[in-house]
Amino acid sequence: MEAHDQTRAEAFERVERELAFMSLIQPTYVLFHYPKPVILDDRVDWNVWRFHDCRDYVWEQAYSEEGWAPIEDYLTIIRKENPHVKIMFEHRSDLVTDGQLERCYRWVEQLLSEPDESTSSNNSI
């Protein structure tokens, strides 16, 4: 577990350095890839989401942590810094249904339009 904690801490430190640099150069947009491995909820069927390489993910149960990555918290922080932020999703449209994608878009839109509160206990995807 300590190796995972160290890897995660190093990944967050790299992201913080990059975001600090981005605030200096003020780019039009930033393409952000979530650090791997991602933590996958083992109650969800991930077959269509393209996690083929086992180095790219860790099952939540095996990682001994509750919940998903705090995406809601991340979006809240991003929205506070830039209320006009645009979010771009990468996905394989042949593997995700229009309904799943629309639910994802509505969920993010709701998070970005909520008052400045974290909603990490209210995952809806």
Rank of each mutant, 00 (worst) to 15 (best):
S23E: 10
N123M: 07
P115H: 08
I39L: 12
K80V: 03
T28D: 11
S64P: 00
W59L: 11
A3S: 11
E117G: 05
L40M: 01
F12P: 03
W59R: 15
E65M: 15
S118D: 10
Y63T: 00
A62D: 15
L101I: 06
Q110D: 08
N123E: 11
P115Q: 14
W49V: 01
I39N: 08
H4C: 09
M22A: 15
E16T: 13
F89D: 04
W68N: 15
E72L: 07
R17K: 12
I39H: 07
S93N: 10
K86D: 10
A62M: 11
S121W: 10
Y29W: 15
Y29E: 11
Q100P: 00
Y63P: 00
K86G: 08
N123C: 12
L40N: 05
R106N: 06
N123D: 13
E81L: 12
Q61A: 10
V44R: 13
Y74S: 06
S118V: 07
T119D: 09
E72I: 02
L111K: 11
Y74P: 03
P27N: 09
E102G: 02
E10N: 15
E2V: 14
N122V: 01
V108K: 04
W107H: 13
M1Y: 05
S23D: 08
I78V: 15
G67C: 00
I39Y: 14
R17W: 04
R92P: 03
R103E: 11
P115T: 08
Q110F: 09
L75I: 10
H33A: 13
Y105F: 03
A62G: 09
P115W: 10
V38T: 12
W46L: 01
Q110I: 07
N123V: 11
Q6G: 01
E10M: 14
S120W: 00
H4F: 14
R8Q: 12
I87C: 09
R17G: 06
